[in-house]
């Protein structure tokens, strides 16, 4: 042990102790059991009857439709919640007004709502016996147990994702640059695209990536409102459940590999963006 090492307090020395090695090994073993094993078992089960069988499961019409509906939901929901996130962040961080804390709490509220409860509140609003049910029925509009219901609950569940990433960043950056641009005659769009966007682009992308992952993977809320019609209102997570309960575990795990790869890509992009300084790496996210 060097003299400099020796002067460090015991818990900050980098060499030596048996306890330190024991803790590291224990941590790695636990991570392997808790985090790596579930990942490994998905692929092991999916390929347990060979690659050809796996491929046959993936290209099944119902699975392909579920993949398409999942992608479609993300195409509809993610841009809307990016727009909402930007508008909310601009309103909250660039102006002073009473009730700001309440507004931020309201923006983050969906994080606190259990997915099942999220589905239930939409049924109680738009379902046949819901608050607006009779009104919708009069106009022959069906939202619940149909694709629009899937879009609506996905909007609810993921509405805070983008706002939550960019609000703290825009707060810490202040408004000096925007005020300078405005004093030079720039309008809202010019100020936003030329001044604000370059400053927040990584955090914005980060929020959008997390939002996308949650939309594509949402299960509970979608399961309540979808009606689970095979080949019609089944998203990928619902289709996985259906295959699993059909005693087609290999098919379920094959479909699950697509979402697992999406999760791994999301983690990869997240790590890259953090390396670029966007986002706060150590804030818990849902």
């Amino acid at each position: 042990m060097s003299a400099a090492e020796d002067r460090l307090p015991p818990l900050r020395r980098s060499s030596g102790s048996v306890g330190r090695i024991a803790l590291i090994v224990l941590g790695i073993v636990l991570a392997l059991l808790l985090l790596v094993a579930p990942l490994a078992v998905i692929f092991a089960e999916a390929f347990s009857k060979g690659v050809a069988y796996y491929a046959r499961n993936i290209v099944q019409a119902d699975t392909l439709h579920a993949i398409w509906l999942t992608v479609l939901t993300a195409i509809v929901v993610v841009p809307v919640n990016i727009g909402f996130g930007i508008a909310a962040a601009w309103a909250v961080t660039k102006f002073r007004f009473p009730g700001k804390k309440l507004l931020i709490a309201l923006i983050e509220l969906p994080f606190s709502v259990s997915p099942i409860v999220a589905g239930v509140i939409y049924i109680l609003l738009y379902g046949a016996n819901g608050l607006l049910g009779p009104l919708l029925a009069d106009h022959d509009i069906r939202l619940m147990f149909a694709v629009p219901g899937i879009f609506l609950v996905s909007l609810f569940v993921t509405s805070p994702f983008v706002a939550r990433e960019i609000i703290p960043l825009m707060q810490s950056q202040g408004s000096d640059d925007e005020e300078a641009a405005t004093s030079l005659g720039a309008g809202f769009w010019q100020t936003f695209f030329r001044v604000t966007l370059p400053n927040i682009k990584w955090a914005l992308l980060y929020g959008a990536v997390l939002c996308n992952a949650r939309v594509m993977g949402e299960f509970g809320a979608v399961s309540v409102v979808s009606g689970n019609v095979r080949g019609e209102t089944n998203t990928l997570p619902l289709h996985i459940e259906l295959l699993y309960h059909d005693y087609n575990a290999v098919g379920a795990f094959a479909a699950a590999t697509t979402l697992t790869v999406l999760a791994l890509v999301t983690l990869g992009i997240k790590t890259l963006i953090e390396a670029k300084g966007g986002g706060d790496p150590h804030r818990p996210r849902h």
Partner: peptide
């Protein structure tokens, strides 16, 4: 390991459930 810590947030719950 640091990146993997967030896996439970990124992995859809139904996938975690069957795994």
């Amino acid at each position: 390991l640091d990146a993997l810590i967030d896996l439970p947030f990124a992995l859809p719950t139904a996938v975690a459930g069957i795994a």
